[in-house]
Simulated assay, not measured.
Amino acid sequence: MELPSTKPYLLRAIWEWCCDNGFTPYIAVQVDARTVVPREFVKDGQIVLNIGQDATNKLNIGNDLIEFQGRFGGVARQLSVPVGQVSAIYSRENGAGMAFEIGEETASSDIELPDDAAEGDSDEPPPEPPRPEGGRPKLQRIK
C-alpha cells in the first residue's frame, strides 16, 4: 500500500505559517492541461499566484487540487491547480518557503497550452521567488 503524498500537507502548513506571520503566500505552478488559470498570464509554461487571504475567495487547499477565486485585471476567475503541479510555495516578503519536484506524470508531450505559452521548455526550473533585501530566499527541495 502506497503512502499518500506529504505535499498537500506541507502546502497547507506553509500557507498557514505565512498567514499567521503577516506574510503573503505565493505558489509557483507548472501549467499543464489540467491546470485552470488565466492562460494570458502563463509565461514559459509557468504561473506564479498569490494565494493570500486578501487575494483569494473560497480557497481550498485539498489533497489533489488547490481551488479558489481570484481577480485578474478586476475580473473574478475560478482557478484550479493540481497539487502535483505546484513547484514552490513561499513568502513574497522574505522568500522563505519550500520547493517541490514536479511528478513524472506530466510529460511535456501531454501539455496542451496556447502557442504563446507552450514555447518554454518544461524541464526549466520554476521561476525564482523575488529576492528579499539582505539575503537569498530559503527554499528547500523535497522529493
Rank of each mutant, 00 (worst) to 15 (best):
I47R: 00
K58R: 15
Q78F: 11
D20M: 09
K7L: 09
D64W: 08
V37L: 06
G84W: 01
P8N: 11
E67Y: 02
P4I: 06
Q46I: 00
N63L: 10
V83T: 12
E16M: 11
V86T: 08
D54Y: 03
A28M: 05
E2Q: 14
C18V: 05
V42I: 06
A33K: 14
N63E: 13
Q78R: 14
V36Q: 12
F41N: 04
V31L: 09
G22M: 07
R12A: 11
I66L: 14
I27N: 05
F23T: 05
D20W: 04
D64I: 08
N63I: 07
L59T: 03
P38A: 06
V29A: 09
G84I: 05
A55Y: 00
A76K: 11
A55G: 02
V48N: 00
N60K: 13
P82E: 10
Q30M: 11
T56Q: 01
T24V: 12
Q46F: 01
G74I: 12
W15I: 01
N60L: 07
V86L: 03
T6C: 04
T24N: 13
Q46V: 02
L65K: 13
P4N: 13
Y26S: 06
A55H: 00
R34F: 09
L11F: 03
G22W: 08
F72A: 09
V31R: 10
A28T: 12
L79E: 04
N60W: 04
Y9H: 10
P8K: 09
G22D: 09
N50A: 04
P4Q: 12
N50P: 01
N50T: 03
E67S: 15
A88L: 00
V83D: 05
Q53H: 03
Q69N: 15
S5N: 12
D54S: 09
G52W: 00
T24Q: 08
A33M: 06
G62W: 05
K43E: 04
A33W: 07
I27C: 09
G62H: 09
G73T: 07
L65M: 15
I61T: 04
E16C: 08
K43I: 03
Y26Q: 15
N60Y: 07
D64N: 15
Y9L: 14
I14V: 13
R12P: 02
I66Q: 03
P8G: 10
E2W: 09
S87E: 03
N57A: 14
D54R: 05
S80V: 10
Y26H: 14
R71E: 13
V81C: 05
C18D: 07
K58E: 14
V75Y: 05
G62T: 10
P38L: 07
